[in-house]
Amino acid sequence: MIVTTEKLTKRYGDRAVVDEVSLSVRRGEVYGFLGPNGAGKTTTIRMLLGLVRPTSGTASVLGEAPGTPRALLKVGSLIEGPGFYPYLSGRDNLRVHAARRGVGRPHVEAALEQVDLVGAANEKFRRYSLGMKQRLGVAAALLGQPELLILDEPTNGLDPAGMADMRDLVRALASQGQTVLLSSHLLGEVEEICDRVGVISQGRLVAESTVEQLRGDTVLLIRADPIEKAHVLIEGSSLHGDVLHVRETDAGSLVRTLVHADVDVQEVRPLRRTLEEVFFEMTGVA
C-alpha cells in the first residue's frame, strides 16, 4: 500500500469534517476519491500532506508519517488549484519549486514538456488561462518524479476541452505506472479514469472498491409476451410493470428457455447502475 489511513479524523470544535476515514491506495493504481463538495475530500488530502493535523487516527504515506520531508519528496500534489507567484513566468515558478524540492533544471524542462507548456513557459503565470494554470500545477507536482501524485479536483474551473486535456494527461501518467490519488466530485471523470474508488460523504468513507464492484451485479431486463409466463419460467426474476429483472448474465440460455416455451422475446438488455446512481444512493445527494 502506498497510502493507508486508520480512523483518520479531523474535528473543528464539535464538527467532524473527516470522521474515522480508513482508506488505502495501492501502488500503480488510479484511486478516485469521490464525494460531494464539502464531504471532507480536501481536508483528508491536506492531512495526507501534513498541511492539516489530524485530531485522531493515523495515516501513512509511502511508509512515512504525512508531512515529513521523506514523505513529501516522494509525493507530488496539486491541492485546490495551483498556488504560484503571479508575477513569475511558468518556468521561473517551476524553478522556485524545484529549488525547494532539491531537483535541477533538467527536471523543470522535462515537466514543462510533459504537460505541453514549453511554448508558454516564459509567460507570466497571471496571464495563463485556467487550463494552463492547472497544467503548470501538474508540472510542479511531477517535479522530482514522485512515486505518488495527489490531484485534488484537477479539472475544477476548466472548460470541457480543458477537462478532456487533463483527463488525457492523468490517463497518460497512469499508463506509465504512476500511482495517482485523484479527488473529484465529477463522477464521469472518476468512472473514466480510476481503477478503484473511495466514496466519502459527510466526512465518512461510505464505500471503497473498484468501480465495477460499486455498480454491483448486472441485471438483465427482459420484455416478453406473455410476461407472466416468462416470470414463472425464469427463476429468481422480478416483475417490474411489463418487464422482468433478472440477476443473470447468461442471456443466451434465458432466451433459449423462453423461446422453447413459446414466449415471444421482444427485448433483452443489460441494466447497469451508473456510478452516478450508486453515488447518489450512497451520499444521499440528489
Binding site: 500532506l49 501534513g50 498541511l51 515529513t68 520531508p69 513529501l72 519528496l73 509525493v75 500534489s77 491541492i79 485546490e80 488549484g81 495551483p82 498556488g83 504560484f84 507567484y85 503571479p86 519549486h97 525547494r100 524540492r101 532539491g102 510542479a140
Partner: peptide, 13 residues
C-alpha cells in the same frame, strides 16, 4: 496566492 501551500508540500520541513 496559495504559495505557502505549494511551499509546504514541496518537501522542506
Amino acid at each position: 496566492w496559495g504559495t505557502w501551500k505549494t511551499t509546504l508540500t514541496a518537501g522542506p520541513r
